[in-house]
Amino acid sequence: MENLAIQLENVSKSFKYFQLKNVDLTLPTGQIMGFVGANGAGKSTTIRILMGLMQADSGVVKVLGHSQPENQTLVKKEVGFSSEEMKLYGAKNLAWHIDFIKSIYPQWNQAYANELLKRFDLNLEQKIKQFSKGQQIKAQLLLVLARKPKLLVLDEPTTGLDPVARHEVMAELALILRDEDRTVLFSSHNTADVEKISDQITFIDRGRILDSNDKESFFENWKKIQVELPSETLLFRHHRSIGIEQAGKLASVTTNAFTPEILTDMQKQNIKVLAVEKMSLEEIFIANVSYRRQGE
């Protein structure tokens, strides 16, 4: 059986105004998963449950083979967790934080921490409150990465950053993650960030998992087909098409199960295929959300 770093089966959690519904999520060891959803989609709730910070109402939660939340102490020794809402102690400098974390994690790698300090261009003696938001996030990442976790869970690490800082953090993160075999769950509402570093992608919306697959499969399966119709009659939705935008004889058909047979079928119906376009992850995400919301 494949080694799973994260295994969520049928996990549900109800709040007054929000429900996480029957979430199934698996992340094999060595993979980087982008967990994409709009604000309030349930990303942070899912992550809090898998970190053992919050108890699910039902379902099975296992992280690195340990059930959660009962093994949260054990799990958190092996998992590096950083979230957008986390803040370090402003009155203290980075060296103080490093000493604190080093005293907790015996596997702390000082040589790697020094390398990250250089890469991130951080000053050990500078107080955290004097850091920019981007530097604070880099400091948090350093504290998490240098403890050499078996699993890295990053909850919206780039949210709230200006475009330059976001680009810097993502570039560094992409480099670091490429360095060696890592298992990472990376949540974001920013599809560009996720596209850059993920092998696997999972979409979540309104507390439900919409889709989960490897990145390449998403790009292979999701296409936008530009066609010219023989007449201006409205084009009916094909069983493999999930969205149609039509203006006169011209139409744009979105499919989530692209095969060359779709084009052959269209040609048989005198539909002229003008182009088959690759969709960006953002377009795939939006089309996916709209399609599922229509069905609710």
Binding site: T73, K76, S83, M86
Partner: peptide, 17 residues
């Protein structure tokens, strides 16, 4: 309030600790 508790919650402790 300043979300430093979120940083602490990520460490190997439980709510009782």
């Amino acid at each position: 309030k300043e979300n430093q508790m979120s940083f602490i919650m990520g460490l190997p402790i439980n709510a009782t600790d």
